[in-house]
């Protein structure tokens, strides 16, 4: 595929050419970065480590209307999803997470909302030159410049961005840009390789997942789950901020005579998640829930879709209030094998 160069000074023009599309980009809010819709004329340069909340919400919004209807009626309407969307500057791990989750949403019966959004979105990734403290993507099959799930990859070469189209959608976007871009040469490709190597070298924390998916079921009654979960608060931080966590809840909401059925992110760390109406709970304590979370990512998902549902973004380790560190947990699993 073609590789192009974009001078950083032309970045606002580049963003400006995306008119008519919804553009999501990392933006600074009062505390840190988050993905938000760009207002017309804005073009913040993506200079950040990563956002606290992953951009999974672009394809799988935290709250999404599934159906609209009137109270006591039997007719339902679907919301319209038809606007082209571009996500600018997401990290390769988050894009990879979208590709991983897509496997589930396309499994057997398609999830129409996710698929429609996926079809209309162009993911423009930004390779990591400076991975964070808890990044461990190479340990779980990713890389700071992974293109999996992306349509277009940008690499920050200092003065320029190197743009590499990955899919037809990315190619089309490059074409739209016309003469904003210039052809990249072999030097830039070399420069990129060097940067990726450097970035990989900066990753300090690693996990060894060899044998973990096969071994996890055998550790069902291992005391390690009790130890890991003892300090767990049962909050949803790790799951809500995880780019691959995809569980949701469906609720009906009524406002006057208007009503909707909506889905919201849910978390397997909540007791209420599996609670039966009878009061019976198949996962009554935090131990079972923690065990399920790790098993789901590192074993069940591998069984079903042949890929570990963890991309090594490090958010759960970073933000867990009680230092339940997935890197350390997998290390403990490995030791117990």
């Amino acid at each position: 595929m073609s590789a192009m160069l974009l001078n950083k000074e032309k970045w606002p023009e580049f963003v400006g050419k995306l008119t008519g599309k919804k553009v999501w980009a990392p933006q600074a809010d009062s505390e840190g970065m988050r993905f938000a819709l760009l207002a017309e004329g804005e073009a913040p340069v993506p200079d950040y480590n990563n956002t606290r909340v992953p951009p999974k919400g672009v394809l799988f919004p935290q709250t999404e209307t599934m159906l609209k209807f009137q109270v006591k009626a039997t007719e339902v309407d679907e919301p319209e999803l038809d606007q082209e969307t571009v996500v600018l500057g997401l990290r390769p791990c988050d894009a990879r997470a979208m590709a991983i989750v897509e496997k589930l949403f396309k499994w057997d019966i398609d999830d129409p909302y996710f698929i429609k959004r996926r079809d209309m979105v162009t993911l423009v990734g930004l390779a990591c030159n400076d991975p964070g403290l808890n990044c461990f993507c190479p340990s779980v099959g990713g890389s700071p410049a992974s293109t999996e799930g992306l349509d277009l990859l940008m690499v920050d070469l200092g003065e320029n961005y190197l743009l590499e189209a990955v899919t037809g959608k990315g190619e089309a976007l490059l074409k739209e840009m016309g003469d904003l871009l210039s052809e990249a040469g072999a030097d830039e490709a070399k420069e990129k390789e060097k940067l990726v190597k450097e970035a990989e070298g900066k990753i300090k924390r690693t996990v060894d997942t060899e044998g973990v998916p096969e071994g996890l079921p055998g550790l069902w009654e291992d005391p390690l789950w009790g130890k890991v979960s003892a300090s767990c608060l049962g909050c949803g931080t790790c799951t809500y901020l995880c780019p691959t966590c995809h569980c949701f809840d469906i609720q009906d909401e009524v406002e006057g005579f208007d009503a909707r059925r909506c889905r919201t992110w849910d978390s397997c760390m909540f007791g209420e998640y599996t609670l039966h109406t009878s009061g019976h709970n198949p996962r009554p304590t935090r131990k079972e829930r923690t065990r399920n979370r790790i098993n789901h990512k590192y074993s069940y998902y591998v069984d079903k879709f042949d890929v570990i549902a963890c991309v090594g973004c490090g958010r759960c380790s970073n933000l867990c209030p009680v230092n339940i560190d997935i890197i350390d947990t997998i290390r403990q699993v490995k030791e117990a094998l």
Binding site: S30, L233, G236, Q251, S267, P321
Partner: peptide, 29 residues
């Protein structure tokens, strides 16, 4: 602006030593 950022992970409630209802009214359906 502040509440708009809330992701409703309930960590504020769960970490609070004084939020210890077995069945939280904010969880009820």
């Amino acid at each position: 602006e502040q509440f708009d950022k809330c992701v409703r992970c309930y960590s504020c409630r769960n970490v609070c030593p004084l939020c210890y209802c077995q069945d939280c009214v904010l969880d009820r359906l």
